[in-house]
Design a binder for these strands. Structure first.
Length: 339
DNA sequence: TATGCGTGGTA
DNA sequence: TTACCAAGCAT
């Protein structure tokens, strides 16, 4: 029967036949590629990340290229991926690597985990994948596998549970093949020990899994019930002039910070004559975030004349919208309105 | 310690 | 349609 002792051995063996070997960030496991992929993969699924990773690496092939660009450029390549503080932290970390580590990605745990946007799990992944060092990770896949294997029916978002899981994750690490093992346990969580309808028949750990033994897999992981989301309201004024949209950089530190948005006030209405503007379309939409719902109205206004004072924002050509740090719903809306 | 932070897929 | 959730981190 699978015991705690041979979990890693079984996973490594399983991975050679059933693991994922062709992901873009597995082609070259240098710390730069691993770092970028691990940041993109935080709270984000593999299939979503793949095209973003490929475009990002093509544009910024190494740390030097990243350190020599600006935050706006990085955000434009992050547009649509969400959790934009990740992109801002990548920029900040690139500066740190350039200034504190002579442009070379650090190999020491403390140095790595001190980089912005890198916590214990991401540091562990980078160390395991790039440097083959014995460090644990604890992502949602690993959590689920361990919670089920040991039939832990404690709420997964409790600090005490997390602490216990880190301890277990540490304790089952192999002394060799740490990179393969780390990939294996994540692959198992993603493809076999899935959130719903786990394929226990295909699991290399099934004979020792306590959740399976107790028929408890469907109720593990246990989560506290979530609060209902408040609704917030907003309005966007989408000004079009000469096949361009007027956008303002969102300097607030909340949602969509540092991204470009249409004005939320009718800034040009009073400054122009009625004859110089024409309302083309109005509408209402909503988008749901992890902690609230945003309901917003939009007004698409065509200007026949350029307003005098527009220094607080920029006019973006329709064809340049893919090169701007725009939130996904706004990019979608502007793309529709420009057709 | 709990909450804020995006988006798209899935049941 | 709604609710949940994913290769977490920062505060």
């Amino acid at each position: 029967m699978t015991s705690k002792i041979d979990i890693s051995e079984r996973l490594i063996k399983w991975h050679s036949s059933f693991g994922r070997h062709d992901l873009p960030w597995q082609k070259n496991k240098n710390p730069y590629h691993v770092w970028i992929s691990e940041i993109m993969l935080q709270q984000t699924q593999v299939n979503t990340v793949i095209p973003y990773f490929e475009k990002f690496i093509k544009q910024f092939p190494n740390i030097a290229a990243l350190a020599n660009t600006d935050e706006d450029q990085i955000l434009s390549y992050w547009s649509g991926l969400g959790y934009y503080s990740r992109a801002r932290n990548i920029y900040a970390a690139a500066q740190s690597i350039k200034n504190l580590h002579n442009g070379k990605f650090p190999e020491d745990y403390d140095d790595i985990v001190n980089l912005p946007g890198i916590g214990r799990s991401t540091a562990g992944a980078i160390l395991a994948f790039s440097f083959n060092k014995k460090y644990a990770i604890l992502d949602a896949n690993v959590k689920r596998v361990l919670l089920r294997f040991f039939a832990i029916e404690e709420p997964v978002n409790k600090t005490k549970t997390i602490k216990r899981l880190w301890s277990i994750s540490d304790s089952i690490l192999p002394n060799q093949n740490i990179s393969t093992y780390t990939q294996a346990i994540m692959d198992l969580g993603a493809t076999v020990c899935k959130r719903s309808n786990p394929k226990c028949v295909d699991c290399p750990l099934n004979d020792g899994c306590l959740a399976r033994k107790n028929n408890a897999s469907s109720r593990i992981p246990v989560k506290n019930k979530s609060k209902d989301k408040p609704v917030k309201y907003s309005q966007f004024y989408i000004y079009e002039y000469n096949k361009r949209f007027f956008l303002i950089k969102n300097t607030k530190t909340k949602i969509w910070s540092q991204l470009w948005l249409p004005p939320t006030e009718p800034i040009f209405q009073e400054k122009l004559n009625r004859d110089d503007l024409k309302i083309l379309k109005t509408g209402e939409r909503s988008c749901t975030f992890s902690h609230f719902k945003l309901s917003y109205k939009y007004t698409h206004i065509h200007l026949c004349k350029e307003p005098n004072d527009n220094s607080f924002g920029l006019w973006f050509d329709f064809i340049d919208l893919t090169e701007v740090g725009l939130p996904a719903p706004i990019k979608k809306l502007l793309t529709e309105l420009s057709n």
